[in-house]
Design a protein around this nucleic acid. Structure first.
Ligand SMILES: [Zn+2]
Ligand SMILES: [Zn+2]
Ligand SMILES: [Zn+2]
Ligand SMILES: [Zn+2]
Lengths: 161, 161
DNA sequence: AAATAATCGACACTAAGTCTCAACTACTAT
DNA sequence: ATAGTAGTTGAGACTTAGTGTCGATTATTT
């Protein structure tokens, strides 16, 4: 896995440059985050995945590591409506967080890679004198799968009723 | 206050139509929400404000009332990065939640009334087959006050150093 | 005014996240 | 390589937002 390796090295470098030690616990946490890049894991989930890898790790250590990685902008902390913090690798060189599609039926989280907020941010800075550093944009709605499921259920009702 | 009165009546009507009883606790909670329309109160804050009004109210009742009001789309539940739920009256006739400017320095929350996401939502529906029902958009950055404060501090340093 | 189904409030409980502190370890400099 | 040290770890106590329980209460209907 070429890409993961180079990301891994980059992250380790960032940690080192910021004066943090490269402990096995931190390496394993980053490893998990890289492996589950597509997911949006909670601290608890990361904790279990690291523990499953081989040795143990303390939950507090996971929280501390995630805090550091967030400070260094290696990951982004996201909070959807359930109030549980989830973490998202900040891979790309984009300075801004990508968007999310949160399905109200099944709870799935899909990513929207395009930013598309550039014009809006300019308006905000002009009209509100607010210096935008980042954003969080989540669309609430019905995902493709659930919409298709709904359609099936509907035709079932029509057939049977 | 004409506007508050008519909003109050509208909300009470909505509750009644949905089959909920109009208890004094619910009325007081709505009253507080209307009075603090500009704020983004947590359940705890609402609880204290209702209690301060006259009689007591249970915290659980506040949570239950807020849940009902959210279901009926009279209020919107918001979760910023601290993970605490905050509630926002859904006054206007806009079907979509307005946006927020969250200051990273002082924690203030400002509102952005314009929507501006119409085009983006159309793109999302087309490209991702995701049926958008609502959204949450928060810009993280530095508010006007804090930016001015920063400038002052900076010139102080220049003068003194 | 009585019947009743909804609602209330006190309090127990759950769970995400933080704090504490003694033990430990990655790095630095000899 | 070794020792010194500052940073880090993990267990568990703690905090706190939010939920669940249940007997007592009350808004509404008739
Ligand atoms: Zn879905
Ligand atoms: Zn994401
Ligand atoms: Zn500010
Ligand atoms: Zn608002």
């Amino acid at each position: 896995m070429k890409k993961l390796d180079s990301s891994f090295k980059l992250i380790k470098e960032k940690l080192h440059k910021a004066g943090f030690k490269l402990t096995p616990q931190r390496e394993l946490t980053v490893e998990v985050l890289l492996e589950k890049e597509k997911d949006h894991l909670s601290a608890e989930e990361i904790y279990l995945l690291v523990k499953a890898k081989n040795t143990g790790i303390g939950l507090a250590t996971v929280y501390r590591t995630l805090e550091i990685l967030t400070e260094l902008q290696i990951i982004n902390k996201l909070t959807f409506q359930d109030g549980i913090a989830r973490y998202d690798l900040n891979m790309g060189s984009d300075k801004h967080q990508h968007h999310h599609l949160l399905c109200l039926k099944c709870g799935s989280i899909e990513e929207v890679k395009q930013d598309m907020l550039f014009e809006i941010e300019k308006e905000i800075e002009r009209d509100y004198h607010f210096l935008v550093k980042d954003h969080r944009l989540t669309f609430h709605g019905i995902c493709r799968n659930c919409a298709e499921q709904d359609k099936e259920d509907e035709s079932d009702v029509n057939v049977n009723g």
